[in-house]
Amino acid sequence: MRFPGANADRDEAAYVLTGAPLDATTTFQPGTRFGPERVRKFAATYDDYDRRTDSFFSDLRVHDAGDVPAWDALDEYLDHLTAELRAAVIDDAVPFLLGGEHTVTWAGVRASDPDVLVTVDAHLDLRDAYDGNPLSHACVVRRCLDGYESDESSGGDHPTVDEVVVLGARTGSPEEWERADAPDVTVVAPEDVTDWVREFDGFGGREAYLSIDIDGADPGFAPGTGTMEPFGLSPREIRDAVRAVAPHCVGIDAVEVNDRDDGQAAALAGKLLREAVYSHADAR
């Protein structure tokens, strides 16, 4: 199944959508392997036309490259996924990544090499390791900030971001909150996100990457995710953040959708991805 309206040929695409059905380190409710196809399915009912930007999604040169099938060797998979996304960047297209667990964001950051990571998330994801695994989904923001050197490769010299903004975070370990106190991290509580968006005026010319973890939404709106956390954001609050940040982005993803609801999480993720495309294209 192709993302609805993503009908551009690869060689003419301005946006390349790639599915990454990784489901290797989920800690509570698995099922993110079904996320990409589920989002495609529940996005099928949306109208092509967007009144706010006076544009048709099908005219915005979006190409759906299908999925990059996942396997258990996380280092190797992330390297391969990074290369696939990097090919879009080389062709002057913006990579849109459809997860899969949040770990795949590190591939998106490595491929697009932004200055700032903005993530909508209930969790800080700033652990250095979780259950002994530094590539857990609970560590992805830490990897994007501080990098990682695999014992099995000569890597470690991967792009990292200079700054992280976490929108909607409401839980984390003591060690994560300590890391979040550093000058390169800004945590915006759910009740403050609207004010942050209202005051947002770009990143001073710096490029950003936007990651939308669907658990940033309150589970009443998006129960189909691995680790639900109450007291979260409304869909409109996330939509407004996406509209504000997307024009400044060199890469965007939506992650952590699983198959454990009636489509609420997938429908929201698909709508937010479309909002990101409309907003980015309108600013060009």
Rank of each mutant, 00 (worst) to 15 (best):
D157L: 00
A6M: 13
V277R: 03
G99C: 04
L78Y: 00
A244H: 03
F34K: 13
P235W: 07
R143A: 03
H102A: 02
P4E: 04
R198G: 04
A217N: 12
V245I: 15
E12T: 15
Y130D: 04
L167D: 06
Q264V: 05
P183V: 03
R61P: 01
Y46Q: 13
A83N: 14
H123A: 06
H280C: 03
P190G: 07
V242S: 03
P183C: 06
M1C: 04
A269P: 01
S136F: 01
E199V: 06
G216I: 10
L78H: 07
D59I: 02
D75S: 01
N133A: 11
Y49V: 10
G108C: 06
A269D: 02
T27E: 12
C144G: 03
N133D: 15
T105I: 10
K271L: 15
G205I: 09
R10A: 15
R142H: 12
F200H: 15
A244R: 00
R51H: 12
E101H: 01
G263F: 14
G172D: 04
D48M: 11
V89G: 01
Y148R: 02
E163Y: 13
F200L: 14
V62K: 05
E199P: 05
V185K: 06
A246Y: 00
K41R: 14
D181A: 15
V193P: 11
T27C: 14
L117K: 01
A283Q: 02
P183G: 06
I238A: 12
V120M: 07
E175D: 14
F3A: 07
A254V: 15
H63Q: 13
Y49M: 10
T26S: 13
R236A: 13
G66D: 09
T45R: 11
D253C: 02
E101G: 07
G270D: 03
A266G: 11
D218I: 10
G31W: 05
P219E: 06
E163G: 00
W106H: 07
G100N: 04
T27D: 11
V68N: 05
L78C: 00
T45E: 10
L167P: 08
F42K: 02
D213N: 12
V255N: 04
P174E: 05
K271T: 13
E12S: 14
F28R: 08
G31Q: 09
H248R: 11
R239A: 15
N133Q: 14
